[in-house]
Design a binder for these strands. Structure first.
Length: 217
DNA sequence: TAGGCCATCTGGTCCT
DNA sequence: AGGACCAGATGGCCTA
C-alpha cells in the first residue's frame, strides 16, 4: 500500500484567507479510522494471549451469567456481592501469593507479582478493580475520540487515517500557527512569532515530515 | 522479524 | 473516600 506516494504538498493552498487542500490526488475511498479500531485478538485468534486473573474472573462471570459479548465491546457488568461470592475465590490466590511469594507462576501477568500494597489505600476488591478498569477504558476511549476529532480538522488527506497521535499533535500545532497568522493573532506571546508565509511553510514541512516518518516506520 | 503504535490492566498520586 | 489522572508493563497488530 503506497497511496501516500501520490500526495503533493503543494496541493495545500491559501485561497481568500482560507486553507484549501487540493484533493485531486485523493484515493477514491478513504479508509475510516474506526475500521482500525482493533480487538486485541480479533485479527489473529490463534495466537495465545496470557490470561490474567482478571480475565479469568471475567470469564467465570460470563460463564456464570451466560453472557455473550462482542470481542470489540467493552465488558460492562453489574453484579451483587452475593453473586460475586458464588464465583471462584480469587482472593485465595492472593493469600497464597502473599504467603509464598517464591511460588509465583512466572507465566502469570506481571501485575500479580506486584505484592506491594499501598499504605495509603488497600488493594481494590475485584469488583472495584473491574469498575476502575472500565472507567479507565472509558477515559482512554474518550482520549482516542478526541484525537480522532482533532485528526478530522487538520489539513491532511491520503493516509491520514493512520497518523499517529504524535503526528496529529505536531500537525495540529503547526496548523494553529497558520490560523493565528491568518487572523493576525500571535499565539507565541512574542516569542518566535511567524509570518503567514513562515507558518504556512512550517505546516507543509510538518506534514511532509510526519508522512516521511510514517513511511520510514 | 524488529520496531512503532496502541489497547488494556494496574497501582500510585492528585483532586474534589 | 473515591473518582480522575498518570505512567509503567505487557502483548497484539501492522509495516518495512
Amino acid at each position: 500500500m503506497n497511496n501516500s506516494s501520490a500526495i503533493k504538498l503543494e496541493s495545500i493552498e491559501l485561497d481568500n484567507n482560507r486553507i484549501v487542500v487540493n484533493t485531486t490526488d485523493l484515493p477514491a475511498s478513504m479508509p475510516h479510522y474506526n475500521r482500525m479500531k482493533r480487538s486485541r485478538k480479533a485479527a489473529n485468534p490463534s495466537k495465545t494471549i496470557k490470561t490474567s486473573r482478571q480475565t479469568l474472573f471475567i470469564d467465570s462471570l460470563m460463564n456464570t451469567f451466560q453472557i455473550q459479548t462482542d470481542a470489540s465491546s467493552p465488558i460492562l457488568m453489574t453484579s451483587t456481592d452475593d453473586e460475586l461470592s458464588n464465583l471462584p475465590q480469587f482472593d485465595r490466590i492472593d493469600e497464597q501469593e502473599n504467603n509464598d511469594e517464591t511460588s509465583i507462576d512466572m507465566n502469570e501477568e506481571s501485575s500479580i507479582t506486584h505484592n506491594s500494597v499501598s499504605l495509603k489505600r488497600p488493594r481494590l476488591s475485584y469488583n472495584k478493580r473491574l469498575e476502575a478498569n472500565a472507567r479507565e477504558r472509558e477515559r482512554v476511549h474518550n482520549l482516542t475520540a478526541a484525537f480522532e476529532a482533532l485528526r478530522q480538522v487538520i489539513p491532511m488527506y491520503g493516509d491520514q487515517s493512520k497518523l499517529s497521535r504524535l503526528s496529529i499533535l505536531r500537525i495540529a500545532c503547526s496548523y494553529v500557527h497558520v490560523l493565528g497568522a491568518l487572523n493576525e493573532i500571535d499565539f507565541s506571546q512574542g516569542q518566535n512569532a511567524y509570518t503567514l508565509n513562515e507558518s504556512f511553510h512550517m505546516l507543509s514541512c510538518t506534514i511532509l515530515n510526519e508522512l516521511k516518518r510514517k513511511k520510514s516506520n
